[in-house]
């Protein structure tokens, strides 16, 4: 199963992937450090799940989310952000994100997220 992890912070990606592997050791994981690379990877690899940060250089998460949803309206995007304002949450959900979770993601949260996704 292919999973795409998008965050400009290497640490954030590392930490997310670490927790992810605990639950899905067999997952094939792709990393992107901005929205542009993420959209390219999404096109080429068609991952089952995308973990997407919002604030990133080059292309931010909102933009990337829009493009990903236009490529595949059934895409499962989980927005992971430190910005947990209700306003931001409403916006990403309106754009088609499956859910929005605050950083950082610990093991319990990860299992909860994975349970709510379709594989």
């Amino acid at each position: 199963m292919k999973i795409l992890v998008v965050d400009d912070s290497k640490l954030a990606r590392l930490s997310l992937i670490k927790t992810l592997k605990e639950h899905e050791p067999s997952a094939e994981i792709f990393e992107a450090e901005n929205g542009l690379i993420a959209v390219e990877l999404f096109k080429n690899e068609n991952p089952r799940v995308v973990f997407l940060d919002l604030t990133m250089p080059v292309m931010d998460g909102y933009e990337a989310l829009k493009l990903i949803m236009s490529i595949d309206p059934k895409a499962q995007v989980v927005v992971v952000s430190a910005d947990i304002q209700t306003q931001a949450q409403a916006q990403v959900l309106a754009l088609g994100a499956k859910m929005m979770v605050p950083k950082p993601i610990n093991s319990d949260k990860m299992s909860d997220i994975l349970n709510r996704l379709v594989f």
Binding site: S9, L11, I84
Partner: peptide, 20 residues
């Protein structure tokens, strides 16, 4: 750069926490 990246990411989390 790695150290700065970590600090920045942790601060993002901390600041999000403060807002809440």
């Amino acid at each position: 750069e790695d150290h700065l990246d970590v600090l920045k990411e942790l601060m993002n989390i901390a600041v999000g926490n403060a807002t809440a």
